[in-house]
């Protein structure tokens, strides 16, 4: 009986949360198309989100490309397919690993920082202060951040992809002697439109999910110091889950459309 009560209250909470998120999403879209877009805040957020994540994304992407080559090489050498290394790396990085790893890094860095920032603004009544001044906090805080992540995460992912390929080239030169031109010609030759476009489109959704979850968790956090930590933490967890879910959907849709 007690279990039933807990379970029904769990479902109720979950449904309430879904309802709240839907309302929050509709507020976002209503404000996107309302006049008075906050350009300067949008540019500041692009700088904060994009430029400030560049080093982290760059280093992890380089290491990822390097490690992938080191791991793939023994297997491919066994089959005498060593020349397929650039091909294998570029397809796996561009289609899947690059966008997902970049998005996960951004979820950890950006979603948590947005969640904590808005959560702390909520706790210190800054959001209420904006609202009672007659200004529109959703337009200033939420719209700019979600659009900035939707714009910057794809750019970071593309850059991360290229840096990964550099990492792969670096690793390949530990053991093999391959020219830079040949390596990149092989990488690019292995790719076509169906590799680039779905990857690019899904990173836009990854960015949107990161921004949306961070803003939602921060904006709707409770008024207590503990809530800031909870908002940051649950923003990372939820955004990461959304990334894998979107990725799964994107792969299914891509397969249906192109293969």
């Amino acid at each position: 009986m007690a279990d039933q009560v807990i379970s029904s209250s769990g479902w109720k909470k979950w449904l309430e949360s879904v309802g709240d998120q839907t309302v929050f999403l509709s507020r976002f879209f209503r404000n996107v198309f309302r006049g008075g877009f906050e350009w300067s805040e949008f540019v500041r957020q692009c700088y904060e989100i994009g430029y400030r994540s560049l080093t982290l994304v760059g280093i992890t992407s380089f290491i990822m490309g390097l490690v992938l080559i080191l791991q793939l090489r023994p297997t491919l050498v066994e089959f005498g397919a060593e020349s397929m290394l650039p091909h294998t790396l570029s397809v796996s990085v561009i289609r899947e690993i690059g966008p997902v790893i970049t998005a996960i890094i951004c979820a950890g860095k950006i979603a948590s920082s947005i969640g904590a920032e808005l959560g702390s603004m909520k706790v210190t009544e800054q959001i209420d202060a904006m609202e009672v001044s007659g200004a529109n906090p959703v337009q200033y805080l939420v719209v700019t951040r979600i659009l900035a992540t939707s714009f910057m995460v794809p750019l970071l992912a593309m850059l991360g992809d290229v840096i990964s390929l550099f990492g792969g080239y670096f690793a390949l030169n530990f053991t093999d002697d391959i020219s830079f031109t040949l390596y990149f010609t092989k990488c690019v030759a292995a790719l076509d439109f169906t590799d680039y476009m779905p990857a690019l489109i899904k990173t836009i959704f990854f960015g949107f999910a990161i921004g949306f979850v961070g803003c939602y968790k921060g904006y709707t956090s409770d008024k207590g110091t503990e809530s800031v930590g909870i908002a940051a933490n649950s923003a990372v967890v939820t955004a990461s889950l959304w990334i894998f879910f979107i990725d799964m959907m994107a792969v299914q849709i891509t397969n249906l459309l192109y293969y």
């Binding site: 008075g36 603004m121 210190t124 009544e125 800054q126 209420d128 202060a129 904006m130 609202e131 009672v132 001044s133 007659g134 200004a135 529109n136 200033y140």
Partner: peptide, 30 residues
């Protein structure tokens, strides 16, 4: 809300903005 001012207990200053930007926030937007 433009006719009713609300002073919060903590002051609720926007901590990512300078004092001047805090002042100008409602002036430019509202």
């Amino acid at each position: 809300r433009t006719k009713v001012g609300f002073l919060f207990q903590s002051g609720a200053l926007y901590d990512s903005m300078t004092v001047r930007e805090n002042m100008e926030f409602a002036l430019t937007r509202v």
